[in-house]
Design a binder for these strands. Sequence first.
DNA 1: GATGAATGAGGCTTCATTCAT
DNA 2: CATGAATGAAGCCTCATTCAT
Lengths: 198, 198, 198, 198
Amino acid sequence: MPRQARSKATIDAIFDATIQILLSYGVRRLTTTRVAERAGVSVGTLYQYFPHKEALLYAIIEHYLSQVAEAVEESCNQNLGQPLAVASDALVSAYILAKSKDAEASRALYTVSSDVDVADLVNATFKRLHDAGGRLLRSCPHVQFENVDEVTFTLMAAVTGATRVAFQNDAHREKLDDFREQIMTMCRAFLQNAAVDR
Amino acid sequence: MPRQARSKATIDAIFDATIQILLSYGVRRLTTTRVAERAGVSVGTLYQYFPHKEALLYAIIEHYLSQVAEAVEESCNQNLGQPLAVASDALVSAYILAKSKDAEASRALYTVSSDVDVADLVNATFKRLHDAGGRLLRSCPHVQFENVDEVTFTLMAAVTGATRVAFQNDAHREKLDDFREQIMTMCRAFLQNAAVDR
Amino acid sequence: MPRQARSKATIDAIFDATIQILLSYGVRRLTTTRVAERAGVSVGTLYQYFPHKEALLYAIIEHYLSQVAEAVEESCNQNLGQPLAVASDALVSAYILAKSKDAEASRALYTVSSDVDVADLVNATFKRLHDAGGRLLRSCPHVQFENVDEVTFTLMAAVTGATRVAFQNDAHREKLDDFREQIMTMCRAFLQNAAVDR
Amino acid sequence: MPRQARSKATIDAIFDATIQILLSYGVRRLTTTRVAERAGVSVGTLYQYFPHKEALLYAIIEHYLSQVAEAVEESCNQNLGQPLAVASDALVSAYILAKSKDAEASRALYTVSSDVDVADLVNATFKRLHDAGGRLLRSCPHVQFENVDEVTFTLMAAVTGATRVAFQNDAHREKLDDFREQIMTMCRAFLQNAAVDR
DNA sequence: GATGAATGAGGCTTCATTCAT
DNA sequence: CATGAATGAAGCCTCATTCAT
């Protein structure tokens, strides 16, 4: 097994272990020793890959956030020039799909996000989504928005925020499909309402 | 200074200190000693009011959340029977206003709200909002919704979630008024779209 | 109620409370606050009677130990000149009776005796018993002992030590009467064996 | 130094430190930090071997008590079938010898033994002694006892209780040899008196 | 490189004691 | 005198991090 691949495998194992422990023990009990143990490596090894605990947490959040950002960006790019309704649906859909792909991880990471100092990372990722969404909206034919930035911000805030609520709400964890439909409706309605013909 | 008042003052000081420390140090550095110190009391005193750190966090979150929930409930009750658009605006407005009243505290408490220990409280409060919102929607004349619960959930998730994003987003903290307008628009659009005449 | 009597009543209440708490919570949870509360007085009042917690514990142990010592001394004095067997029985009987009088307190105090610095008190009390016993043995007609001190020491050590074991042994707490008979037999046999005619 | 041996050495050091602190500071001042310090390890290390303070105390008491119990059991087994006097002497002798082997430790541990947390252990050990003694007495030729259990209990209570008193009594610590002789005499006398021919 | 025992700073909590009311 | 809220030293324990093997 080549070095690179082994590294990757170890890091994946560590990430997985982290998520699992987060889910079953909670942030408070997330210790480096426990993570290492669950990942099947020694603490020493863990520290070879991540200089601090915080670095591990940062890395794992970055990993998941960037996956989501990429998915959304890609979807946005592929739907440039589409009619507003289509674009809107694509955007919302891509986001929720990306989050749902590893729903457990998403749930788990929401609980850490306030513990580590990832505000910057979150803000940066949000900006990526915001930018991608803005480009998409601007590309829609026949329509334009009075102040795209505000609209885009609100759109993305609603999608990401509502999704968080849905994931963290015990009662709704099962109804994600319904939720997606609703949010799509909401965004479509919002955008159509905010748009003016051009 | 009569006993009751002194108690109240002490608890307020502790709450304030907690918020401040949350804002300047973060959850990870929120220690009972630090809170007591900042509040100008001894740790012992803190522990006379709250049996453990968790109880303090619970109490403070409960305090702020219930204020918000009350404000929203009241607004909902006062707008029962109003046209959909009015009702929607009242609901959204009440929520964001309540949150903005003590914006710093809101920002601070978002960082604690993902804590396992208060998850139930957060869920319970969300339920209060959900119920109040549901009653309001059901009371609107001339309209009805195919599945009110889904609609209400999505509405509240979007409002609360988006507000969280707005509060936590460094870039947007100043533009809360614009944000409120936008969210109001969004919710109105969503509800009108989801409603069917009756 | 005259001052003296009120004092006495308070101190009694405090002693009782201490014993009860010892019995139901254990030494570790014996706090001055709890004692005061159970005794129906404030901590401040408790501290008016006893300068430290240790003073309280010392006083209560002293109280019970001296009761026992007095009872034994009195019994010894009243049996001076009696035949060995009678004297022996009287001694043993007096000790166990005194301990049994407030069996709960005895049990409770055994658990504190190593916590407070009462070694001197215990030694001193043991000396009182030892002396009283020695005088009694020396007074017995027709017999004498080669080295009375050794004999007396062993006698008293056996009686007091065995009684402690009996009180602390969960299984035997009910059978104290049988135990007393047995110990009486043992002591009689020992003394008769150790005695030489004169 | 192989791992096992180092572990053993560490545990021994911790045990020794505990005994020493017990002797020089008393139970009340026995803190985990102090033990670790005296043992030349860090608190963390102490907690790697013992999950809490209670576990340490339990372990150390268990260690010493089981040594004593084993010694007594062995002596009892080796003297099965011996005449009463021989059996009695062997039993008493074995117990006191075992206690004397590490007299300091014995003295120290008496101060812990009334702790609630180890009460069960003490009772259980007493039962081992009781059982071994009972078997021994039953095996003696030509004699039997009306109720062996009562006799055995009293015998063991007297031996263990009196030994405790002797160890804890400042004045007698030097005269253990005399004490042993006396206790042997006492037990022999008791048993011969309690026995009936068969 | 990998390991995991050892470290010790620092967090939470208790409780003896004081002192203003 | 009595009260009991306030104090803060000190105890227990955890866990991120290091480093000898």
